[in-house]
């Protein structure tokens, strides 16, 4: 896989920092997308001018790397926690392609007045019971035809049943709206997680 600002060096992933242009280590133990890369994901659907909607931006760790990768694009982070968003807000001020929204991703219409365009990619990491439903709702409003989604599915947020069963059920739901491009379990970096990449049908 070749991405302009992604560097693979001795088995570790780095990005080129948007501001300093220096090589920046991406920790697979802190970021599920990087864990997915380490587990052999072949394709990250991001280009340097991607427009990205990121649901569950938290304090901004992973999304800061996405902002490196889409350095000529726009990356918008949505999170429900005001405490996390306080920190993310400061990060956005330092990165001219990064923007904060404090809202629940469960209510995509509540930020419609801010986003009057379609995005190329929706990334979601919200650890909620209705993760797939949240993704669909947002894709309906914001994802362009043929756009991509990356979902980090935390099975323990859904139920305490057998991981395989939960994954099968959720992947089936996911498959109704998206063609599955790739999926990878994230052990040992994250237990009981799966990363799914899809393309809007």
């Amino acid at each position: 896989m070749i991405l302009k600002n992604l560097i693979l060096d001795s088995g570790n992933y780095y990005t080129t920092d948007l501001n300093t242009k220096k090589k920046r280590f991406w920790d697979p133990n802190r970021s599920k997308i990087c864990a997915g890369l380490k587990k052999g994901i072949n394709m990250l659907p991001i280009t340097t001018d991607s427009k990205v909607l990121y649901l569950g931006s938290a304090e901004g760790y992973t999304i800061s790397y996405i902002s490196d990768l889409a350095d000529n694009g726009v990356v918008i982070g949505v999170d429900i926690s005001p405490i996390s968003t306080q920190k993310f807000y400061l990060l956005c001020k330092e990165r001219n392609n990064l923007l904060p929204i404090l809202a629940s991703a469960n209510e995509p219409d509540s930020y419609k007045h801010l986003i009057d365009f379609k995005v190329d990619l929706i990334i979601q990491d919200v650890a909620q019971k209705n993760q797939v439903e949240i993704l669909k709702k947002n894709a309906d409003v914001y994802l362009k035809e043929g756009g991509f989604v990356i979902l980090s599915l935390k099975t323990t947020a859904i139920s305490q049943g057998k991981t395989e069963n939960i994954i099968n059920k959720e992947v089936e739901k996911f498959g109704k709206d998206f063609n599955i491009v790739e999926k990878k379990r994230l052990d040992p970096f994250e237990k009981k997680h799966i990363l799914i990449i899809g393309k809007k049908k």
């Binding site: 726009v74 918008i76 005001p82 405490i83 968003t85 306080q86 807000y89 956005c92 001020k93 923007l99 904060p100 929204i101 404090l102 809202a103 801010l114 009057d116 365009f117």
Partner: peptide
């Protein structure tokens, strides 16, 4: 497509302050 960066920051700022300042949060 238009992106009003100022508006994003203004709204986030207002909401953060408002939500961190509630009785429940305290």
């Amino acid at each position: 497509m238009t992106i009003n960066r100022e508006l994003f920051f203004k709204e986030a700022q207002e909401k953060i302050k408002e939500e961190l300042n509630t009785t429940d949060q305290k």
